[in-house]
């Protein structure tokens, strides 16, 4: 019935009064894969997720989750998904265990099965020792892990995670990324939003890169990187204001993009071996010294830069 597709989004639109937050987004998520929605703040990721879990009505378009229409069969959709909201949503006056028990009941679990599942989740998110502690006293990272655990309680067919790693320490982040891989290992489908391209690169089988409410590119990580071809990403710092070289460098053959970002210049170039000498030359001409250079293989950051002229991160 769902012909191998866990999620199928068809031309989803959502406008708030003034803002068109999502403008015609379509994508397919296959069963058992990790699919990343990658995009900067305000791209529309959370809005898409709210529509997929039936919290928001699309202004236009339709989507299916495990073959169920989000417009016509919201209860079936809700039973199939486990949602991990971007903002931690927990009861701070209750303990970690009490939270899991309560949410488990909301997902329809009861009795010994619930108890056993709660124990498993506590183990998975590494909060077994702190299960009796009040959530209000937890660190940000602990709350985030519990926030995730709740969404996994009923072994949903599709897990929807909205930026689960924002604002936490590297160790908790590692723990979460490993959890996602385990989930995929168990055959769950994961829809994962993030604005960290490393996460998308590491986790995702397919990636949709979003900007301003639209998908600007989608495919596997390799597919996306091919968009920028054999480009290199060059970051440099210079001894003077970027204005003095910006125009010359943009006009230099082999340079696709020049992006000033906080004290650095990010360039997308054809072949750094050929272009770098020209950059040094024109810098000297303008009386500017290049003080630091870093050359990277192409990555998703470069793709985003290439497609939008802006950096993924703000």
């Amino acid at each position: 019935m769902s012909n191998g597709k866990a999620i199928q989004a068809l031309d989803l639109h959502k406008s708030y009064d003034e803002i068109q937050a999502v403008r015609g987004v379509s994508f397919d998520v296959r069963q058992g894969e990790v699919f990343a929605l990658l995009g900067p703040n305000g791209a529309g990721k959370s809005t898409i997720i709210s529509m997929l879990c039936c919290l928001l009505q699309p202004s236009q378009g339709e989507a299916f989750v495990m073959g169920h229409s989000i417009l016509k069969e919201p209860s079936e959709v809700k039973a199939a998904i486990g949602v991990i909201p971007q903002e931690v949503a927990l009861y701070e006056d209750l303990s970690a265990r009490e939270n899991l028990i309560f949410w488990g009941k909301m997902y329809g679990l009861r009795g010994p099965a619930l108890k056993q599942r709660v124990d498993e989740i506590l183990e998975l998110i590494g909060l077994r020792a702190r299960q009796k502690g009040r959530v209000g006293k937890f660190s940000g990272g602990m709350k985030r892990r519990l926030n995730i655990g709740i969404g996994l309680l009923h072994r949903p067919q599709v897990v929807i995670m909205d930026e689960p790693t924002v604002g936490i320490d590297p160790q908790s982040r590692r723990n979460i990324l490993d959890n996602v891989k385990e989930l995929r290992g168990e055959g769950m489908t994961v829809l994962y939003t993030t604005h960290y391209m490393e996460e998308a690169q590491e986790l995702a089988d397919h990636i949709a890169s979003m900007d301003m409410g639209e998908i600007i590119a989608q495919g596997t990580c390799d597919d996306l990187i091919k968009i920028v071809g054999e480009c290199d990403r060059v970051d440099l710092t210079i001894s003077a204001s970027a204005d003095r070289v910006l125009e010359t460098w943009k006009a230099t053959p082999g340079v696709y993009q020049v992006m000033p970002e906080d004290g650095k210049l990010g360039l997308l170039v054809d072949d750094s071996n050929l272009v770098l000498p020209k950059l040094f030359e024109s810098a000297s001409g303008a009386g500017v010294r290049i003080t630091w250079v870093d050359i990277q293989e192409p990555n998703l950051e470069a793709v985003f830069l290439h497609l939008t002229g802006r950096a993924l991160r703000d």
């Binding site: 809700k78 909201p85 927990l90 909301m106 997902y107």
Partner: peptide
Amino acid sequence: EKGTLARLFTTPTP
């Protein structure tokens, strides 16, 4: 305001 109501609405609870 805390988001738990929205989360309740994402569970299969009428």
